[in-house]
Amino acid sequence: MTAVFWIAGILAVAGALGVIVAKTPVHSVISLVVNILALAALYLALHAEFLALIQVIVYAGAIMILFLFVIALLTARKDPIERTEGKLEGQRELGLVTAVGGAVLMIAVAASAGLGRMPANEALPSGFGSAAAFGRELLTTHIFSFELTAFVLLAAVIGVVVLVGRRQL
């Protein structure tokens, strides 16, 4: 399991770096897919089988493909659209500050929560991470956030219908 963690972890970080380093947008998308698949492997190492598969189906299988669709359409010619740095100034400096600040914050939170001292082999409840356990949790404990998310998605669907369908009405 430790080997899985290290391999998947390194791949996830490499993928995340690839997203920002790549010059071509399509290469960024490929890196992000690698990152998402590595994250799914990490979930799997945590015995969250259902979550890992849903991660692949929803993010790698649907959302990133739509990203790729739009980016492939916009960069149909190979030369990158943005040759210059653009009008936004001080991006690098701001990015550096945010990254360092975020890292410090995360390390502080991890240290105060005592993540380094987590018990190693605590027994998992039976059926942990299975679709049944996941569904029961989602529809009992987290029913409010579940319904709220459904409501937000419904609003988005109605919004799309109103915006796109107006021409034909």
Binding site: E49, F50, L53, I54, V56, I57, A60, S130, A131
Partner: peptide, 10 residues
């Protein structure tokens, strides 16, 4: 796997 259909679909 327990979720064979999902793995296949993924």
């Amino acid at each position: 796997p327990n979720a064979g259909v999902l793995l296949l679909f993924a």
